[in-house]
Simulated scan of single mutants.
Amino acid sequence: MIGRRRSRASDGRPRVTVYSRPGCHLCDDAREVVAAVCDELGEEFEEISIDGDADLAARFGHEIPVTFVDGRQHDFWRVSPERLRAALTR
């Protein structure tokens, strides 16, 4: 939407982070939900691939996609648009 200010966390980063990996169908689904909700609410999100990062792969390898809101883990495997919307509007 033209003229809509995009919200960011206090550290300047997007409020929503999605940890994923290429070729993951659940990650593709999560990205669509996150993008739609963020667009609706004027938020930004970032997506970080766990591939190539041993620490991230060890932490999230069996739970991707994993979403964080405001630096705290919010969901894994599936993203509920209702839950994400509620977390972003609190």
Score class of each variant (00 low, 15 high):
Asp53His: 09
Ser49Arg: 08
Gly71Asn: 02
Thr17His: 07
Leu41Phe: 06
Val37Gln: 04
Ser80Pro: 05
Leu84Gln: 01
Glu47Ala: 03
Glu32Met: 13
Asp28His: 12
Val34Phe: 03
Asp28Met: 13
Pro22Glu: 12
Gly52Lys: 00
Ala30Cys: 04
Val34Cys: 04
Asp51Glu: 12
His25Leu: 12
Thr67Val: 09
Gly61Pro: 00
Glu82Lys: 15
Val16Gln: 01
Thr17Leu: 06
Ser20Ile: 08
Gly23Phe: 00
Asp55Met: 13
Arg5Gly: 14
Arg21Phe: 06
Asp53Cys: 07
Asp55Asn: 13
Val79Asn: 00
Leu56Ser: 04
Cys24Ile: 10
Arg85Ala: 06
Val33Ser: 01
Ile48Met: 07
Arg83Lys: 13
Leu41Gly: 00
Gln73Glu: 14
Asp29Ala: 14
Arg4Gly: 14
Arg8Ala: 14
Ser49Met: 07
Phe68Val: 08
Ala54Cys: 08
Leu84Phe: 03
Cys38Met: 07
Phe45Tyr: 08
Leu41Tyr: 04
Ala86His: 11
Tyr19Asn: 00
Glu44Arg: 09
Thr67Phe: 04
Asp75Cys: 14
Gln73Pro: 11
Arg59Cys: 09
Gln73Val: 11
Val34Leu: 04
Glu43Gln: 15
Asp11Pro: 05
Ala9Cys: 12
Trp77Thr: 10
Ala30Leu: 01
Arg90Gln: 14
Ser10Thr: 13
Arg31Pro: 01
Arg6Ala: 15
Ala36Trp: 12
Ile2Asp: 14
